[in-house]
Nucleic acid binder design. Sequence first.
DNA 1: AAGCAAGTCAACCGCCTCGGA
DNA 2: CTCCGAGGCGGTTGACTTGCT
Length: 229
Amino acid sequence: MGRSPCCEKAHTNKGAWTKEEDDRLIAYIRAHGEGCWRSLPKAAGLLRCGKSCRLRWINYLRPDLKRGNFTEEEDELIIKLHSLLGNKWSLIAGRLPGRTDNEIKNYWNTHIRRKLLSRGVDPVTHRPINEQPPANITISFEKGDEDCKISALEKPFKLQEPQFKIPDLNLELCISPPFQEEPLIKPVKREAGVCFSCSLGLPKSPECKCSNFLGLSSGFLDFRSVEMK
DNA sequence: AAGCAAGTCAACCGCCTCGGA
DNA sequence: CTCCGAGGCGGTTGACTTGCT
């Protein structure tokens, strides 16, 4: 027996939401809060799949959404976060108040990709397009793969080199402490409460009280500053 | 004005993760 | 420990809009 579908597709609407459906969903969530999405459509009198309701609320109806164009600062932040996290849109969205993962994903694919390409930067690797990847480096993450072990032991110093980045490695970096064995640049002890702008090397905000943090300007990025939700 | 191509973005699909039974 | 269901996520689709010929 297979998994039961998330909703009874035969009796659900699909496609664009109507004003009335939006109103019903907003009214229900205002009254009861976000809760069990599976049972919400029936309770709210909507002929929609629970997932569809959730998506509509999160991506479009939530009152805290910031509609409108992305600012230049947001652009740069997205680019930096993408270089660290890859296509982890929800994580990126978590750092941009009022923006949704779907919005950022669309914006990336329509605007930022082109922007980076026009700068001569590969939007996937964040490296110059005409730069040849280093020869004879093959990294595999297959378990038991000897190449993987060798490469992982031989190449960690590469993390200190801004010109060399392994895109698939980014995700690992963001959830793992930086390589610690004989670091070329000794990490300075992080002060408590470093704001996210400083951790990314962005200009300080007026309320920023951080000091002495190794941001991008110092050439060393503390990947642990990008915390999971 | 009409037709077409390219761009945009809301919504869907299917897989993955996590927590509870 | 295993199974199952719900929620969450990223990739993709397709309807709609805009710009160009």
